[in-house]
Amino acid sequence: MTNDTITQKLEQLATNAPHGLLDEVLDAVGILADEFTLVDGPTGPAYVSWSRAGVTAYVPQAIVASPEDFAAQHPRPADYVEAPPRRLAGHLDRALETGMLGKLAVDLDALGEFQRKVLEKCAEIPPGEIRPYGWIAREIGNPGAVRAVGTALGSNPIPVLIPCHRVVRSDGMIGKYAWGSAMKRELLRGEGLDPNIIEETARRGIRVVGTETTGIYCYPTCRHAKRSFSRYRVDFRSAADAEDSGYRACKVCRPAA
């Protein structure tokens, strides 16, 4: 083989870097852009963004109109794409349809530990049910942090999918929402709840309801309370009242410590 043939062969050893290496690098140094697309959600069209780890944001188009606006307000670089990747698409559709995250991964890595705990707990609340802020505070082992829970939910980056609209004031009133209380009420109505009845119940001082036949008390929207017949229903002003009457707390909605 002549030197020329050898150098020619050597030149042919030049190849392309593996597809995906760039993303690996950008991810390793923490600057990989999110992708986002437009989906149909319970409040109409909405932008959903994701990282490699999971969903990172949800914003209705009524709040942020154009992809450019979404990218501008997103905390990380974000590229618009036509559709979510296959690993995400099915789980995302299902989550929007059922109102539960299910197998849909969410990426909360950018948040602090407290907020992450609050949001993970919030994601456990099933559609058609509500819990007070104090419930989350208690459940995450921080019963005094009711206001902090409110703040953490107020800056939830993935509303609707992480259902902060299902968390209400401790006096039973629907309360505030990052996108206005009207949208919070609309979301709850979409899940079969009547915000007016909820607030009427709250105004009458009812916090938990018991079922005579079982001796168990629940939050009024707990699926177990809703299932029991109204003639067996007993209203209580507090969990303590229910306990005093010999009722025990429901193990599903856990209305007391």
């Binding site: 030049a14 190849t15 392309n16 593996p18 597809h19 995906g20």
Partner: peptide, 13 residues
């Protein structure tokens, strides 16, 4: 064997 997903069409060598 490629570790990351690589497009075989892109590999010249």
């Amino acid at each position: 064997r490629p570790v990351t997903n690589s497009d075989p069409g892109l590999i010249a060598a």
